[in-house]
Amino acid sequence: MNIFRLTGDLSHLAAIIILLLKIWKSRSCAGISGKSQILFALVFTTRYLDLFTSFISLYNTCMKLIYIGCAYATVYLIYAKFRATYDGNHDSFRVEFLVVPVGGLSVLINHDFSPLEILWTFSIYLESVAILPQLFMISKTGEAETITTHYLFCLGLYRALYLFNWIWRFYFEGFFDMIAIVAGVVQTVLYCDFFYLYVTKVLKGKKLSLPA
């Protein structure tokens, strides 16, 4: 464990909690892409299948359970409890254009052609594009609630910190995983224009609104 990975995990945890609290407290999922949340639930499900087969640490197990629990709770709040506030018209990204290519790629490019490894690879590739429906929705509505921008900032920051973690691990431990690194770079790059808007607008107290 190193400082980049720890702050990365905490940033990821913060994002998940911020979103869950936002929906729960405001009793509304307006502006939130349910499709992205389903993709994240799928990412955690396919990545953490080893939850019960290999024990790494209490921290690792607890965080995995929290991530999976919050992901499904968020999907439940969006599609069941606060379904009336779900903005389906603007959440129109065709996720099959993500899942199918990612599924194909994970079968073609992986470290080991075993079910668990292919599912892990699928989750890594999927996570790198899972935020697209949410970013697409914001571009369609032309704006985002400030709390939603904080959620997105923490979520984008987490994988950016993981990039530093991989540099650290390569330098000090001689380990690196090209699949995770390439997907992590793609994932972080997808947030760049949002990061720019967040820093230039939200941090200056303005509302995030895109030139429609």
């Binding site: 790494i56 690792n60 431990e173 380990f175």
Partner: peptide, 10 residues
């Protein structure tokens, strides 16, 4: 194997 090492990440 070395790659398996990274599976200690979330």
């Amino acid at each position: 194997d070395e790659e398996g090492k990274l599976k200690d990440e979330l």
